[in-house]
Design a protein around this nucleic acid. Sequence first.
DNA 1: CGACACATGTAACACGTTACATGATTTG
DNA 2: CAAATCATGTAACGTGTTACATGTGTCG
Lengths: 195, 195
Amino acid sequence: MSVRSSLLAILSEGPAYGYQLRGEFDLRTGGTWPLNVGQVYSTLERLERDGLVDRSGSDEEGRVRYTLTEAGSAEVRSWLVTPVQRQATRDELAMKLAIAATLPGVAMADIIQIQRSSTLAHLQALTRTKADAAVPSTASELAWSLVVESMLFQAEAEVRWLDHSEAVIAKAVRRGLIGVPAITQSSTAKTEVPR
Amino acid sequence: MSVRSSLLAILSEGPAYGYQLRGEFDLRTGGTWPLNVGQVYSTLERLERDGLVDRSGSDEEGRVRYTLTEAGSAEVRSWLVTPVQRQATRDELAMKLAIAATLPGVAMADIIQIQRSSTLAHLQALTRTKADAAVPSTASELAWSLVVESMLFQAEAEVRWLDHSEAVIAKAVRRGLIGVPAITQSSTAKTEVPR
DNA sequence: CGACACATGTAACACGTTACATGATTTG
DNA sequence: CAAATCATGTAACGTGTTACATGTGTCG
């Protein structure tokens, strides 16, 4: 519900039209997660259905103006003071590694290596991006820098976790908890893994 | 697509029936993200629709048995060697803070404080959980410990980022980039923020 | 017997996301 | 004029998720 909530929050600054909301969203998040215009309109439709926004006619230029309702204002206030519960959200990477670790014939070291390369590349790109950025002089630039730094912190933690997992798994392999696939000519071809 | 991929991956160990898949999933992820049984069946339906699994009759006890197809096997192999692209995924918390930072009349310090309390509580719970856990003696227990540690690393990074953001924002406030809401009797009541 | 776990399934809905259609306006 | 941008919308689909119905077997 993050797009939905964000659009609602932007509307709390005052009425706006659909296309404008896309621009505001992209501006405030620095284009990190580009938003398809179509999504803005479908989201606005759902927000209207739920009584959180109203179509308050048109502005001077004939564009459809959306305004927060009282319920919408309340929702924004509630959103702002309610912490994001990350523990409830499924973590795609953690899930993948956990499942993979329980599968026989999976080269965990390789999987971790691949993921780390990808994450490190991302990390480098982020570092470059941050270095190129000037000191924020507007609220939007500040917001964008928060986003970039969030990704940096997260990517760093991810690499550390991968390193840690690699060691833990290596130890488990030594203790015979999980196996490593044999490296043979045929191991690159389709291999059936009977239970 | 993480549930879908995980179920598919579990099936790569051999045929299984719906209810069993739920159990396997919960076991391997340590019940961290409990899976509604209904979701297993709807996911299996979609996997069958996409030609990744087949209903291979019933097992000895009359339970519906699902088997991976060749395409399904290929999909699993592909999933395992493809890194998770986190940069493309929207980060709910980063988005929220970024949007909030651009809104006038928002007490960023309070929002960050609330989030940090929540994350720290989560962190404590995780630390306790980990301390209570024995050294993993099966692949499933190992997988679960990876999940817990992933959440630990992530929560720690989150707290560090929140601390960092707090400082950055405080500086921005001092530089007049963003404002702080006045603390008045009426500021708890509905306040209109004209643009 | 009644409660509970096992087992399968379906209907409905949520949000996110894309592709496409349509027209007005601006700009090289 | 042609292309691009602005602006609104819709139809369709994807996964995730829940609530519910239904039946079997088991155990106290």
